[in-house]
Amino acid sequence: MSSKNGSILALDNVTVSFGGLLAVSDFDFTLQRGELVGLIGPNGAGKTTVFNIITGQYEPVSGKVFFRGQDITGWRPDRVTCAGIARTFQNMRLFEGLTVLDNVLVARHSKLRSSMLAAALNLPSYVKEERQAETKAMELLDRVGLVDLAHTQAGSLPYGQQRRVEIARALAADPEVLLLDEPAAGMNPEETMRLMEFICGVRDEFGLTILLIEHDMKLVMGICERIRVIDYGMSIAEGTPEEIQGNPKVISAYLGEEACDYA
């Protein structure tokens, strides 16, 4: 089976299990170029597992993943990223010992053409490439408003700023599809507002397709054009924010349980 209707990303009947326990089953999903889609569901519903399947951290038991029509099922994560899918992590996996700038530069490493020997000997070709990468990384840090902190150790930043570093780092990989795993977690309402503007802004600026997991309903309902709801590893609904809010299945499975989040 090939990708569906020229979509940029498609999951075709994907199933993943851990020790016999189905984490995600028969999952079908497509993303059209330029879309901003939300993936929601109660805790442990399998949302992050879907991300891990797309980016190659987990290999599905059955089913296929297509990116721009190409079958990328079972690819190693680094290859998936180089192909054009970048992600952030729910628990923020920054390289804490490195500076903010170095964190972003790591994501540029796969674009480097110089050999290790050229780098170890500091040959001019390498120095030039390194300078270009640094310029690009500084531009991205400027975009997330962290230029002044470029030489600070990433692990020492407050939570909200670390989230922004992580997004800058993902953008540095030049992705076409960006997967954001709970980008607003731990942010205050004001920070969340700015994050919403930021997400919409970068999508237009970089021509991105974005899939995001989020518990903050204000954010999801506010910026997503389409929402997919999953529970116990299965899709239970899909539609526009309005349709989802009115869907009884969603309310019983999800909103009933976490009504306080929604309020």
Binding site: D78, L94, D102, A170, A173
Partner: peptide, 21 residues
Amino acid sequence: SSYGRAMKSIRDDEVAAEAMG
């Protein structure tokens, strides 16, 4: 160098390093 940065990123977080390409 960029290679050294890649090695340090593996030291700090292997999963994230792989996810960054």
